[in-house]
């Protein structure tokens, strides 16, 4: 674009085509959101979908993908990698959803109280939130799990502990903006109580922003949880976990690459699906 382009007047596209394009995009967004449901269903149905038990040695060790009936190959003790990946996917996905849900509920509550009450409550809660936001979340999470001891529950606890402040900030911002709107003022003049205003006049307006943030966040969470698991902070040995399965099988990387790589690809697909779905949710909510 170093040279100025000639001005070419473009005819406005016919309205009907425009509408068709928009409808197609809307359908794509719904498809993306459908992906979210699909992944959740796969996660829930993992025990039904997995051809073998995730802990059972069922065949020759280190079989290549697609051989001996192993779609993704078998690991060093002859366990079916596909089955382990499906179970790992289940725990990763449900863990990410659990953390997001906790973040939304707890962070949302903090943000709602701070925004609706204002004054010193607002200052106190937001200083606390800022304090958490000022610290690097993954680092604090690692310290917490290291102190409590590795394990799925402790990891969830640690990540939830550092994840809610984002939501508190966003909710509080939305609530403050809404609180200045005429309908809230009208409610206050009508003598509506503080709690009722917060729940009926402020909260509903703030929910879309929170949901959009949450859905865009799931992908990041999947990655964060996987790296904690990779560092050895997740469930202990035989349990199928995507990050840990990759880390424990690093020594096979050069001879049997699929053993550590397959769980990694599963994490990538999971986070990609979450990101695509998150974009879809955002587009639908913002009414593009």
């Amino acid at each position: 674009m170093a040279v100025a382009e000639a001005y070419v007047p473009t005819a406005a596209p016919p309205a009907r085509r425009d509408r068709a394009v928009r409808a197609a995009r809307g359908r794509l967004d719904w498809l993306a959101v459908g992906l979210l449901v699909l992944v959740t269903l796969v996660a829930l149905a993992a025990p039904l979908l997995a051809p073998h038990g995730p802990l059972d040695p069922v065949g020759t060790p280190t079989a290549a993908p697609g051989t001996e009936g192993f779609l993704l190959g078998s690991d060093s003790v002859g366990r079916d990698i596909l089955s382990r990946v499906l179970y790992g996917l289940r725990s990763s996905w449900l863990a990410a959803l659990a953390v997001v849900t906790f973040g939304l509920l707890f962070g949302g509550l903090v943000g709602l109280v701070a925004g609706a009450r204002g004054g010193w409550v607002d200052t106190l809660l937001m200083r606390l939130t800022d304090g958490f936001l000022a610290l690097p979340a993954p680092v604090v999470a690692i310290a917490v799990v290291a102190a409590l001891g590795p394990g799925l529950l402790n990891t969830l606890l640690a990540v939830s502990l550092v994840w809610w402040p984002f939501y508190a900030r966003i909710l509080r911002g939305e609530i403050r903006t809404l609180a200045a709107r005429p309908h809230v003022e009208a409610a206050r003049l009508a003598g509506t109580g503080g709690v009722r205003i917060a729940l009926k006049h402020l909260l509903p307006g703030a929910i879309p922003a929170a949901v959009v943030t949450a859905s865009l966040d799931i992908g990041t969470l999947v990655l964060t949880l996987a790296s904690l698991s990779f560092l050895g902070l997740g469930q202990s040995a035989p349990a199928p976990e995507l990050g840990a399965d990759a880390a424990r099988n690093l020594s096979y990387l050069l001879q049997n690459w699929w053993i550590p790589v397959m769980p990694g690809i599963a994490v990538a697909l999971l986070s990609l699906a979450a990101n695509v779905a998150g974009d879809g949710v955002r587009n639908l909510m913002s009414g593009r």
Partner: peptide
Amino acid sequence: LMVGASAPAFLLAIGGIVVFYR
């Protein structure tokens, strides 16, 4: 880049080793 950003750092690392080293 977008696809790469969806992958965990450890997958990029081990994938990089398989392709560019092995």
